[in-house]
């Protein structure tokens, strides 16, 4: 039973990590129907920004809390700037192009950003400072769920709740939903669609940056390539949960994380990806739009 609980928490942690990244994928897809492959790179850039800021601040001996807050804000702002710029440069000119064009543009952006960070920073792995301290009250259960696991779990839950609230009950959320439903009609009723799309990219990128900070602190190392693998898994999770749906992204991430964790624990970690992707295939066979996704009807 202990073993089961340990694996359960491992899975929840992994799932929450995926969810932090998957939320950005699903938001962008929900609004403009584009799979933003550069999202993993935004996460990586967030982690790098946090790394640089945190390293500099810790040299000057700032207290940990100040470092976390400043690094978090810097990473969020910087990543959002990247997200905003990428949308303007790589996606906006292609908004009326066939669907494949922005997809290829996104993949190109992803490769560009990876290599840009590789050249501008380093190809080496860098030690990420431990921004999440070991809480004393967690010590009795540290062998099951660690402090950084807890912070990631709580952050993911809070972010999901705030996002759901924003989208359901605020003006901008209503405008987002309108844009998602019908862009032309939204424009006709006076919604500035360009601003809404920019806002979506900014929010998605900010989430990725927070994810970057928390996950890098949890793993303890970063390099230019971390966004790619994490991005693939998060994208899988978003599809599993129903891409475009916010609770779906979280649900899909948790299911993916738990599957991997239990597959590792009870079968073999050699097969964790086999099980994760078999599950994806199975779910998509029976529910092509994902667990919480809405079946899309072709607009005529």
């Amino acid at each position: 039973m202990d073993y089961f609980i340990e694996l359960l928490f491992s899975g929840l942690t992994r799932g929450s990590i995926y969810a932090l990244i998957a939320l950005g994928y699903t938001m962008v897809y929900g609004i403009i129907g584009l799979i933003n492959f550069a999202h993993g790179e935004i996460y990586m850039i967030g982690a790098f920004t946090a790394f640089i800021v945190a390293t500099v601040l810790s040299i000057y001996g700032f207290p940990l809390l100040a470092i976390v807050v400043v690094a978090g804000v810097a990473a969020t702002v910087w990543s959002s700037a990247y997200g905003y710029t990428i949308e303007k440069i790589a996606y906006k000119p292609l908004r009326h192009a066939p669907r494949l064009s922005p997809l290829i543009s996104a993949i190109g952006m992803s490769i560009f950003l990876q290599n840009y960070v590789l050249l501008a920073q380093t190809s080496d792995f860098l030690p990420f400072p431990e921004l999440i301290p070991e809480f004393a009250f967690m010590e009795p259960v540290a062998h099951i769920v660690g402090s950084s696991d807890l912070v990631i779990l709580v952050t993911t839950t809070i972010i999901m709740l705030i996002l759901t609230f924003v989208i359901k009950f605020t003006r901008i959320g209503k405008a987002m939903r309108a844009t998602a439903q019908d862009r032309t009609m939204a424009m006709l009723v006076g919604i500035n669609v360009n601003n809404i799309i920019s806002a979506t990219f900014i929010i998605g990128s900010a989430l990725a940056a927070i994810g970057g900070l928390l996950i890098a602190s949890h793993i303890g190392q970063i390099n230019f390539y971390i966004g790619f693998i994490a991005g693939i898994k998060a994208f899988t999770a978003a599809v599993l949960g129903g891409i475009g749906s916010i609770p779906g992204a979280v649900l899909g991430s948790l299911i993916l994380g738990l599957t991997e964790s239990f597959a590792t624990g009870y079968i073999s970690s050699d097969y964790e990806d086999v099980f994760a992707f078999s599950l994806l295939v199975l779910i998509l066979i029976f529910k092509p739009s994902g667990l919480l996704g809405k079946a899309e009807t072709q607009k005529v």
Partner: peptide
């Protein structure tokens, strides 16, 4: 005797398995 997937975001499951 097991292999892990390089680049995974979290290795706690395999660590729990080692412990177990």
């Amino acid at each position: 005797f097991e292999g892990v997937t390089p680049g995974a975001v979290d290795y706690s499951a395999i660590v729990q398995k080692i412990k177990h």
